[in-house]
Nucleic acid binder design. Structure first.
Lengths: 243, 243
DNA sequence: CGAATTCTTGACGTATGTCAACCTTGGTGG
DNA sequence: CCACCAAGGTTGACATACGTCAAGAATTCG
């Protein structure tokens, strides 16, 4: 994998997000970056850390989570290639949650200093990154609605559609299915249910012919009905910045 | 109320957040702003809008919310004096949720153009504002945990402590109590329970001598126990930027 | 091939939602 | 100043989605 390949998913996202000129792209490609492979579950940064680099997802998935008082884990977000899950560490110095690899992943670590320099020198890039953190926030808001208002079936359908929509946008969905190396326990942590109940939901969705979830692959069998059940409207993803 | 009074809560926040010099402060004070009084419940911007100004909370409270498919409302955030709840509209052009006044409030509307200009000219201010939107996101994450993992009693205690901590930080708490003009129905929308159950919880907290909630005023009667019940740790508020 | 995950099932308890009525309070107008 | 009204608060009865526990079956992986 060449260095160009590594920044490509990132550049691709920034390009749709704002006007990025040749000079901007060059500056991004010239960022110092140490590439690292990580296994599923491996921690990237943790609660209380004061990271000195940000982590660009190159391949695979990254998740953000928090452990609550009961010892249970709440997953807060999933990140795909092109995302920088801990960009916030540039300005919020202490981590308020954990970041870890979902499946086997390839990550690029960019030290804070050159990233700060980039932001100072290239206002377009700064704006694109800021925008990115704002859409992150928008996704968090929708997750609040998800866990706060919808029942378990609806929540799962919603999550599945969110991932599908975002992966499609970066060309990583494979027709109506996509690879997502999660266990049912992990999905349960994401939507705030127990493993047992998650299993009931998965079976219900399967038996109704709505979706399949097997060996780390999610397949949408009836997207239209899923959208109904999920109460899904992708507006909050802000995928089309021209709007 | 003079113009200086109006920007003061805002400046106060920015000062602790980053290095803001005299020049920065002057630029902020010179922002064009139209001040408006709003009654409780009045909409400020709504889902689908494309606002051309941002709204600074000068006095009172502002809330952000979303209506889900069932018709129920999920409240996503409460904002206090000094906050700019819809700063995101600078970069995400279509609103993905509603913003409205909680009680009677005073708001300052700042057109996008001069705000963009400010951000371009004054990188310190830009950074402070970016940081602000990042702590917003951090609060969203904690709300996800709240509705996803904690029981109703714990959720209410957590919300009450969050508000208390943030209001104390800007000097708007009155000892161990603070004004918060909410009904039980509104609290229910914030923590994702029914009104009936919210009432049960409020009575439980009252009868155990933990807190009181009456006529728009919340009083913490036993902060230590509340913190336990709430599983509250204020780290996520990022109130001390030196950390 | 064995061991560890992951998935699945059933029985059971409970937190919380819904419905429907009633009570309290604060504000308004006569 | 009282009568009234609307909004908010309170109650009880009942239904249910979901959690927990515990065991067993099916995968996956070394």
């Amino acid at each position: 994998m060449t260095k160009a390949d590594i920044t490509e998913p990132f550049l691709k996202r920034l390009r749709v997000s704002t006007e990025i000129d040749e000079e901007d792209e060059r500056a991004i490609r010239n960022l110092p970056m140490s590439v690292k492979r990580m296994a599923g579950g491996e921690p990237i940064v943790s609660l209380g850390d004061r990271p000195s680099a940000c982590c660009l997802v190159v391949d695979g998935f990254v998740l953000r989570s928090k452990i609550v008082g009961t010892g249970h884990r709440q997953i807060l977000a999933f990140h795909q290639p092109g995302d920088v899950p801990d960009l916030q560490s540039l300005f919020l110095h202490v981590m308020d949650h954990d970041v870890s690899a979902l499946g086997n992943s390839v990550l690029g670590f960019i030290p804070h200093a050159p990233l700060r320099e980039l932001i100072k020198r290239r206002p377009n890039v700064a704006q694109a990154l800021w925008r990115d953190t704002l859409t992150d926030a928008s996704v968090f808001r929708e997750w609040i609605c998800n866990v706060g208002q919808r029942d378990a079936t609806s929540r799962v359908a919603h999550l599945v559609l969110e991932l599908y929509t975002r992966l499609t946008a970066i060309g990583r969905a494979d027709g109506r299915s996509y690879s997502f190396p999660a266990t049912q326990a992990l999905l349960a942590d994401a939507v705030g249910t127990s493993v047992v109940h998650m299993n009931r939901v998965v079976q219900e969705l399967r038996s109704k012919g709505l979706l399949d979830f097997d060996r780390g692959r999610i397949t949408l069998l009836d997207e239209a009905r899923l959208r109904e059940i999920a109460d899904f409207d992708g507006l909050y993803l802000h995928l089309d910045p021209s709007l």
